[in-house]
Nucleic acid binder design. Structure first.
Lengths: 359, 359
DNA sequence: ATCTGGCACTCCGGCAGGCAGAGTGCCAGG
DNA sequence: CCTGGCACTCTGCCTGCCGGAGTGCCAGAT
């Protein structure tokens, strides 16, 4: 294992460390170079090529020794004897943790992102644009989760009478999401009752976070005439059902065509990934494991889902205010450009959050 | 070219046709056998294998002659000299036009379809279930278009005041589709005006096909006080915009993982297909070319979109009543099981139509 | 006139052998 | 502790070779 980064200081005491320290630094540099080259060329990288492309200031032979040590520790591996080295999952992990900086978007890029997202007309459009943008920027598969119901607040509840005993319930959240359900009432519903119910619903639930709504409305039926209570409870039941339905958490994805640039051994790698992408459940769980605010990178076997063992997932939460309402991310081969991808993901999350806050 | 099918009669006159007639029959049988075998094995089929698997009653040598003729006419082709034959697009065309029967679903299959679709709770769910079902039945990529706005009628229009000058417009169609838009009004909107407008909108537009709505509401602003007219026109503008937005025609797809079973020369074939699937526009145009009621089969180069030149598309309209409101279909390799696929597509379209009519 | 068996021909696919190139590990010397 | 050198190993590629599958054509049979 490698120690903490503070060992970079100008060498204060010399005795407690057996002079293995500067060597470690160079080893890390070698690992960084290997990752960068491999990501670029997709071919095992050898010692000679390394010293040519990166000014490491040492000879290939030295690099070979470092490589042997890195392999010993499990950061890199050889596909076969006398081939170059490629990073292992563990190697990538070290790379993103200690060797890579998130690469910020250039300001023209930022302008373009902002401009593209600002053209959106409704929530569907925002999500659609976001996911396409992300796929394009990273040239990978992008996934965006709709702002989740559970973290939103009620903006408005509307009741619409369709037939005497059929009412449509519309729930609008502060994130612009709209859910509608039909309610079959036990009998004809009077206009005044409906208006009253509508007013009370909005009065008592308006502005509240969705999970709190059931408790806030608990006492509601008692406020109505006994004859009207069945109707009220029917509406409430449907409302609570809508609130509870987490499986209504939708996601959108784009960039599947980028899968073709995945690797050489094609059908094998791509098939399970495509299967995973079809399963909303899998994707939701994937995003669910993301820490809210900080960016999460899951590399290869760190992914719980087996089909994604040869992919990496970069994800982060985004939100309309300071707190996140949903997640987004990209899925790509483990050999991806981590700094660039992370930069793009972060930037897009930030801007879509802003857009949502404005609308 | 091959002539009309009535030549199957027991040979009446012998003189005007140079006895090439019975031969034609056998040639067609050979073509059918080639298509069937190739679809099954995915390998060029030779004369010997053909006579072994199908009881054609003639020797390989004879079949070879027929094959030469079929190749001459462009129905089959050889990948290289001394390989077996594979059907051309033209060969498949002849096959589906004259040699194949749509294979009906078995009754357990039909029961399963019906049962699976009946579990749906709303329109989104109907479409989602349909597309998954279709993908599973055909083991190919399935595409389902949402019931289109242009063919639906207005069930209800609702106006919801969110802020003094912000109104949400909700449009509900008879197919259960719901569209909502924000309307920014030029000034605060009075309750009575809003109620009046709501009533008039529903009175004059309710039940009408969507395309007729603009003309039906043409005179509406005149019925209001001059002071309120800007608000009315703002609402109407948004409504018309919603109606006009054909690009809001949404589609859903499933079964992308089935692309891996496409062929040998992988990335090349699959890449353009994935790209096509990402472009809703392409898919919509694809389905748009489908004749409403009858099933359409477009084979290989018959597809206008170039990326789909090595695929076939089987599509058909479906509807809640007797007329179709949207289309659905599947996309697969030209070497697909046409009878089975067509049977599945037809059955699913029929049942989803029934489900929509019921709800 | 049509079908059939036979025959020569072509081409693909797989396999062995040889060769160049890249990369490694190790060792002795700076 | 780094470096140059050397022997070794492995892949990838090309070559040549063979067997198999399939065809096209022709002459004979029905």
């Amino acid at each position: 294992m490698v120690d903490e980064p503070r060992s970079f200081e100008p060498s204060r005491a010399v005795e407690p460390r057996p002079a293995a320290r500067p060597l470690d630094d160079r080893r890390l540099a070698v690992l960084r170079a290997i990752v960068q080259d491999y990501v670029g060329t997709e071919e095992p990288v050898g010692s000679k090529a390394l010293v040519e492309r990166h000014s490491l200031g040492v000879s290939p032979a030295t690099v070979r020794n470092d490589m042997a040590a890195l392999e010993e520790e499990g950061f890199i591996q050889q596909p076969h004897t006398s081939a170059g080295r490629i990073p292992t999952d563990k190697g990538y992990r070290l790379f993103v943790d200690r060797l890579a900086e998130v690469k910020p978007m250039t300001s023209p890029e930022r302008r373009a992102i902002r401009h593209f997202l600002e053209g959106a007309v409704d929530l569907d459009d925002v999500v659609a644009r976001t996911v396409r943008l992300l796929a394009q920027l990273t040239r990978q598969v992008a996934v965006v989760q709709y702002p989740s119901l559970t973290r939103s607040t009620v903006r408005h509840i509307e009741l619409v009478q369709l037939t005497p005993a059929k009412v449509m319930l519309v729930l609008i959240t502060n994130t612009g999401r709209v859910e509608q359900r039909m309610v079959d009432c036990p009998g004809p519903v009077g206009d005044t009752v409906l208006a009253d119910l509508r007013a009370r619903l909005n009065g008592q639930a308006g502005g509240r976070p969705l999970p709190e709504v059931p408790t806030a409305l608990e006492e509601l039926p008692a406020a109505f005439e006994p004859a009207d209570r069945p109707t009220v409870t029917a509406v409430l039941a449907t409302l609570f059902e809508t609130l509870a339905e987490q499986n209504e958490e939708r996601i959108m994805l784009a960039g599947t065509a980028n899968l073709t640039r995945f690797g050489h051994d094609f059908p094998l790698t791509i098939q399970p990934v495509l299967e995973a992408l079809e399963e909303q459940v899998v994707l939701l769980r994937l995003l669910g494991e993301t820490a809210d605010a900080t960016m999460t990178v899951r590399i290869g076997h760190e992914n719980a889902y087996e089909g994604l063992n040869s992919t990496s997932v970069v994800s982060v939460g985004y939100g309309s205010g300071d707190q996140s309402v949903a997640k987004l991310g990209v899925i790509g081969p483990t050999r991806m450009d981590y700094p660039g991808t992370m930069g793009a993901v972060r930037a897009v999350a930030r801007y879509v959050g802003q857009i949502l806050a404005e609308s």
